[in-house]
Amino acid sequence: MNTALGADGLAVELRNVGYRVDKRQIVSGVSFKVAPGETLILLGRSGAGKTTTLKLINRLLETSSGEIFVERRSQLEWDPIQLRRRIGYVIQDVGLFPHWTVEQNVAMVPRLESWPESRVRQRVREMMELVGLDVAKFAARKPSELSGGQRQRVGVARALAADPPILLMDEPFGALDPVTRAELQREFCELAARLEKAIVFVTHDLREALLIGTRIGLFAEGHLAAIYKPDEFLHSSDAEARAFVDSLGAEEGRERSSPKVTGRGRKA
């Protein structure tokens, strides 16, 4: 028992985590905690180290320094395969198996975990409904027969299928057209509010961060500069934070009618 881990139900904790390739320090000194029901955004320019940090959590990359705790157990105590099956993973390019149907893709982790087939089927139905996909219409389709937005819905359903307590999302809506993106962002917000997962969500889009995040961690050059509540972020005096806020202003100016941005602001 490690009592130093703090709050009850802590899902993910990074302590002073670093990652180095050869002699290049890609990420260093990153610390944060995520509890169930929270969505921590990792916001930063491309190359800031967000993806690397995410991959350290599910051990697609091995930390060079510091420690990561998942469900209060040191990551090194976990079998990497078991660890990954407890962590849903959604990436920008989705990565559905092109030779499998939607049903097979969604059922992937439950089947890996040898759930009874009747329970797998029921779960697939639930998950497809959860992400707004008509089961009768889509279950038998191959990924090539879906639109980009539908594919990412399947990606989210697949990540949630085995009911993992933790969800890692790497710019999941980044490749979608603006209208579809807004739709999925909105639906995801509702989903996240309902599911009580610990979510780490990577984006370079402040608008998305404000909409989806309960807290926003600002990444710059491999460091986590600070963690803000969404409303604090807009008034931060940090130069990098200002740069993001200014970019938002510039966009809104261009679009003339400035759309309102509201955060979820739960549990911040």
Partner: peptide, 27 residues
Amino acid sequence: VDPAVLESARGMGMTSRQILRDVQLPL
């Protein structure tokens, strides 16, 4: 084989053998 497919396979907890048998070889 599409790197995104491999990344999601590994990220979701498939073993190397499962990835070879169920993903890389069929594709």
